[in-house]
Amino acid sequence: MSLCEAEKTFVLHGVEENFRVDGREREDYRPMELETDIVSHAFGSARLRLANTDVLVAVKIEVDAPFPERPYEGKLDFFVDCSANATPDFEGRGGEELAVQISNALSSAYRSPNVFDLRKLCILKGKKCWKLYVDILLLECGGNLFDAVSLAVKAALWNTQVPLVKQVDIDGNNINLDVSDSLSDCQRMDVEKAPIMVTVCKIGERCVVDPNAAEEKCSVGSVVVAVAGRKISTVLQTGTGSLHPVTLLECLTLGVKIAQRLDTALWDTLRQIKPNQDVGFLK
């Protein structure tokens, strides 16, 4: 998307007056819709639509060997695919850099054991563990991808059911696992402290959240804040501009505040969601 100077000025003046182009205030989000358990061959899935941004997440599980330096932990991998239909910028290999950036940000945000305890994925110390593949597909890009992806990932992990290992047989170097086929024997992941990302954009002299595509073009700098509970798990600066230390502190404070609000709304939604049902929140 390209904007002329008159359009940029219009966006800047609206943000300054706390009345954005779509009628929101600086700390408001666009309407969201969340749907879970929609990919039949996945262990957990979710689809989140944030205005024109559409994200699909599917979680797959397989048995693997833990890392030698972390014998008590399972594994968690993120893979992001940018659909060429999401935006013309993704045609060819245009979305690869963004995909790697989002994947690295998620890996960094989930790295701490206080955020997501990988020890619960351990089957046999140093020998066998569960490995979770979190596949993220960007179906449509309407701005604010990091926030939408983090919410969809948390919902998909909440929806994920890990099979129960009934018995482990060890015969020399051979390890046989007896995994239950019953869905009633599965257990859900503990994602209460899983991080939520909030993108804070500096537009003019003000900070806004949930920027649309036009506002992202007018931003002089952006900070993505991943918040788990009341603590920041990672910080990522996007865009080409730089931020003054005072502005950076303002962005971090606002990010924590908004993340807690988002987390509350997400949990309220997950508690009432039913299979194959769209639920809108933050409208």
Rank of each mutant, 00 (worst) to 15 (best):
K202P: 00
D37L: 01
Q161E: 14
V57P: 06
Q260N: 11
V57E: 07
T240Q: 15
G92E: 07
L121Q: 03
N104A: 08
V80Q: 09
H244Q: 11
Y72S: 14
R111P: 01
F78P: 08
F10M: 14
V100T: 13
T87R: 13
N159L: 07
N85T: 09
M197N: 01
S2W: 03
A51S: 15
I175P: 00
V63R: 12
R206I: 01
D185I: 05
L124R: 13
S45E: 12
G239E: 06
A226K: 06
L132R: 09
V224C: 12
A99G: 06
L252R: 08
I123F: 00
I273H: 06
L164V: 03
L151Y: 08
D169C: 06
R111V: 00
A65I: 13
I175Y: 01
K131C: 13
L106D: 04
V153N: 02
A148I: 08
G94L: 08
R24E: 10
T234S: 15
T240F: 11
L139D: 03
G239F: 10
L270G: 02
Y133F: 14
G221H: 10
G14P: 07
W158R: 09
N85G: 00
G74V: 03
N52Q: 15
F146E: 03
Y110I: 07
K75I: 13
V11C: 04
S184G: 04
L48W: 06
R93F: 02
F19E: 11
K154A: 12
A213D: 13
P31V: 05
L138Y: 03
G23S: 08
S180F: 07
R70L: 10
K166T: 10
A213I: 15
K131L: 14
T9M: 14
D89I: 08
L3Q: 08
R119N: 09
P195W: 09
A155G: 06
A99K: 12
L124N: 07
C186Y: 06
Q167F: 05
I203N: 00
V200G: 05
T264A: 03
P71Y: 10
K283A: 12
I38L: 15
V246C: 02
R30Y: 11
L266N: 04
V246Q: 07
N173M: 13
V279N: 11
E250V: 01
I203S: 06
N159D: 15
I102P: 04
Q101M: 15
Q101W: 04
E140Y: 02
W267E: 12
C122F: 05
T199G: 10
F116H: 03
A6M: 11
E73L: 06
A259E: 04
K217R: 14
F43S: 10
W130G: 07
E216V: 02
L98S: 07
V15H: 04
V80T: 13
P31H: 05
T53R: 05
F281M: 09
D117K: 07
F43R: 12
K283C: 11
G221Q: 08
S184T: 12
Y110L: 09
R70I: 00
R26V: 03
R47S: 07
R70D: 13
D178H: 12
Q187S: 14
D178Y: 03
E35K: 13
Q161A: 15
Y29M: 06
A105V: 08
C122Q: 08
Y110Q: 01
G44A: 07
C201G: 00
S45H: 01
T53W: 04
T264F: 00
V162C: 05
